[in-house]
Simulated scan of single mutants.
Amino acid sequence: MTISVPDDVADQLEAIPARQVSAYVTDALRRRRASDDIRAALFAAGHRDYDYDPEGAARRLANGRVSSEVREAAIARLAESTGRSVDDVRADLDRQAIR
């Protein structure tokens, strides 16, 4: 397989030992796929991407609570896409909400 990448990416790949480039690219693509799956699950749960805006985020959080049904559906989808249990995903999200 042959791919073309911008010079800055090529420089990063050239810094990796030749025998490890395929593993590095494979890991990067798998992480990207997991990230895309999580982003899709969050989108399905009513979350949107926003520019960095802490004050606006606080307003949206106060005004945009999702229903428990939508939250549980998103948690189930996240658990499935990450291979984790629903209880673990829920516990992580609850811990993050407290912070």
Results as ranks from 00 to 15, higher is better:
A76V: 09
E69T: 03
D88W: 08
Q20H: 15
G64W: 05
E69G: 02
T82D: 11
V9A: 07
Y24P: 01
Q20N: 14
I75H: 00
R71M: 15
R95G: 04
T82Q: 14
T82R: 05
D51M: 01
A18V: 06
A15M: 14
R39K: 07
S81M: 07
I75L: 07
S67P: 00
D11E: 15
P17N: 07
I75K: 00
V70G: 00
L93S: 15
R31M: 07
D37I: 06
L29G: 05
E80S: 15
E72T: 06
T82H: 09
A40Y: 03
Q20C: 10
D7F: 10
S22E: 10
I98Y: 14
V86W: 01
A23M: 11
Q96T: 12
Y52R: 07
A73R: 01
P17R: 06
R71A: 08
A45T: 03
A45H: 01
V66N: 05
A91R: 12
L78F: 05
E80D: 13
P6F: 07
T26H: 08
I75V: 15
Q20E: 15
A41P: 00
E55S: 11
R60W: 12
S67W: 03
R77M: 11
L29H: 05
I38E: 00
D51L: 04
S22Y: 10
R19N: 08
Q12W: 07
S81A: 15
V86L: 06
F43I: 12
A44V: 14
D88P: 00
L61H: 12
G46C: 09
G64L: 08
A40F: 05
Y50I: 02
A34E: 02
R33F: 06
D36A: 15
F43L: 12
R48I: 08
V25G: 00
R19C: 04
I16T: 11
Y24F: 13
E80N: 14
V21W: 12
A91K: 07
G56C: 03
P17H: 04
Y52D: 08
R39Q: 13
A15R: 11
R60G: 06
S22D: 09
R32S: 09
D87P: 00
Q12G: 08
A28W: 12
L42R: 01
A28R: 09
N63L: 09
R77T: 06
A58S: 08
R30W: 13
S85G: 05
A28S: 14
I3D: 01
G56V: 03
A10I: 09
E14L: 11
A57M: 15
S4N: 11
V70R: 00
I3V: 10
S35L: 06
E14P: 02
R32E: 09
F43T: 12
R95L: 06
A15G: 12
V89S: 00
S67H: 02
E14M: 13
A76F: 03
